[in-house]
């Protein structure tokens, strides 16, 4: 029944083999500890250890291959949406904001800025979306939003040249919060320039009058109170990226 075969060797041989094996074992252990220490003493790049940052960027390349306009975030009936919507952050939401003078700035090129009012945005085709909003902290909440998809917006305002760029950069009026988003995610059919929550205009603390809703990203990318949108081939600055988080933060 036993698949092993016993074998006779001298005790000396046993001792030698044991010694050699444990020598190798200890050497590998020392090597592992050395590598671990080396890794933890590497300089940081944007808040993350450089070698780890490299792999995170590589992960982006890998998982970008799965990003598809056909892969949609799961949607829910409106009745599933919570009434008490959690606020996932208030950086960039300074008190001295005057909503009456707000207009969206779309920086098409340096010196060529398109100004759009909230009424003009509301006149575009409206898309409702009930999805599971996911915070990078690990909680999630089914919430109901409405607005115009960025893809529709870009089409309407003739941004065909701009959306050839690799990234879009969004920023709040006080310039304290800013995100960078890869263009495929920006053009995803569920990405909204959002002005409604639970069928009413956005509350002040949810980014009135206009915020980003981008279900293919964690909550940190859903910038509230958009002041301007710009386009570039280099990564626009990103608040949480600078603090050690993954730039992509895709879901």
């Amino acid at each position: 029944m036993i698949p092993y075969k016993e074998h006779e060797i001298s005790s000396k041989e046993i001792r030698n083999r044991t010694l050699i094996s444990f020598l190798v074992f200890v050497l590998l252990l020392v090597l592992a500890i050395t590598l671990w220490k080396w890794l933890n003493h590497q300089p940081q790049e944007q808040g993350a250890l450089k070698p780890l940052r490299k792999v995170l960027n590589y992960n982006e390349d890998v998982f970008n291959n799965f990003l598809s306009n056909n892969h949609l975030a799961k949607t829910f009936p409106v009745s599933s949406a919570v009434k008490k919507v959690r606020v996932n952050g208030n950086i960039g939401m300074s008190k001295d904001f005057d909503p009456t003078t707000w207009k969206l700035k779309v920086i098409k090129n340096p010196g060529d800025t398109l100004i759009v009012t909230i009424d003009e945005i509301k006149s575009l085709p409206k898309t409702d979306l009930v999805f599971d909003f996911k915070c990078i902290e690990g909680w999630s909440q089914v919430t109901h939003w409405a607005g115009v998809t960025f893809a529709d917006f870009a089409k309407k305002y003739g941004l065909s040249e701009q959306i050839q760029k690799k990234y879009a950069g969004l920023i709040t009026p006080d310039k304290r919060y800013y995100v960078g988003i890869d263009m495929p995610s920006m053009l995803h059919p569920q990405t909204l320039l959002c002005y409604e929550m639970n069928g009413k205009p956005l509350p002040m603390n949810q980014g009135y009058p206009l915020r980003l809703i981008i279900p293919v990203k964690y909550g940190i990318k859903h910038l509230k109170r958009i002041a301007s949108i710009s386009f570039s081939n280099e990564r626009p600055p990103d608040y949480w990226y600078e603090r050690g988080y993954d730039y992509y933060s895709g879901l």
Binding site: Y4, H7, S10, S11, I14, R15
Partner: peptide, 14 residues
């Protein structure tokens, strides 16, 4: 077995 040198022992590869 570590210290007795001359005796023979039975081992199996595990």
């Amino acid at each position: 077995s570590f210290f007795i040198f001359s005796s023979m022992k039975k081992i199996i590869k595990k």
